[in-house]
Write a protein that binds this DNA or RNA. Structure first.
Lengths: 148, 148
DNA sequence: ACTATTTAGTGCGATATCGTATTATATGGA
DNA sequence: TCCATATAATACGATATCGCACTAAATAGT
């Protein structure tokens, strides 16, 4: 492997571990049986608006369709979202947040405030703003080049 | 949420998506039923040396012990590693790579050469070297501050 | 209008992940 | 030495993830 390849490999490795550790932090703050993947979808709908199709959510998260079907089923069973038929496309559905869903998202966000605050504090204010643009760029590149 | 908190939240979000996408790329290049998590352990043993205890591997990857027990069982069943009793500690074991394990790791690395090369090429040589130190720092910080 | 193809979502089965509790061994202190 | 506690690994059960195949509906081409 070339040096560039090694760097990239190491990059993905660091990303994997950071993801593992940050997910664990989030998970520990979520109410009872709510999984990080459930919260992520809930949070996505709050931030970017609900009324989306399952497929649109799948595209946002880059997970297999069947995984999202399962996640949405859990959220609906818990009364955090509501699935309605699509108005013009009989194959599709539309996902809406319920009041309980919005409330749960707000509580979760609030519960994560403390650790986020502490971590941001410890890391210092300069690190992330310099990292984020590059990470966004890489994310978008990978997003647009699936199937590599 | 403060701006710092939002930045951190977004950072973890980007990391999660990049991890998702890069894992998918790796997964698609791995032989038949070999999962990314299996390869990661195999690769760890090749790079940092085998003869480690399961717990040492757990600490390196930050996954629950039970997950690693399962992963090691799969690798052993496939004949890619060998589990020997610990010489001085009756509770513990030692993990050794088999020839087949080393061969499989080498093949997997070779199979990933192409996508790694292309991605590294497209991203350019300057991006990663600037990112890696900061990511390492964050990873180490999170590693040393579990239970947040 | 008719048929082939594409697309949205799901059922099912296999496996990965992880929490809880358990077993066996090691270790530290009276 | 004896016992309490800590540690390494696992058994078990619940759930998440995902690939494959399928159904139903939309769309494209003729």
């Amino acid at each position: 492997m070339s040096k560039d390849q090694k760097n990239l490999f190491q990059f993905f490795n660091e990303v994997a571990i950071i993801n593992q550790l940050s997910s664990a932090i989030f998970q520990s703050r979520l109410p009872d049986g709510l999984h990080v993947s459930h919260f992520s979808v809930l949070n996505h709908l709050v931030r970017l608006g609900d009324g989306k199709t399952p497929l649109a959510i799948v595209n946002a998260f880059q997970v297999p369709k069947t995984t999202m079907t399962h996640t949405l089923a859990v959220l609906e069973k818990r009364g955090l979202i509501r699935m309605a038929p699509h108005e013009t496309d009989g194959r599709s559905k539309i996902v809406f947040l319920t009041d309980a869903g919005r409330a749960t998202q707000a509580e979760a966000i609030a519960a994560m405030g403390d650790p986020l605050h502490k971590i941001a504090d410890d890391l210092g204010p300069d690190v992330l703003p310099r990292l984020l643009p590059a990470l966004e760029k890489i994310r978008k590149y990978l997003d647009e080049n699936r199937g590599l």
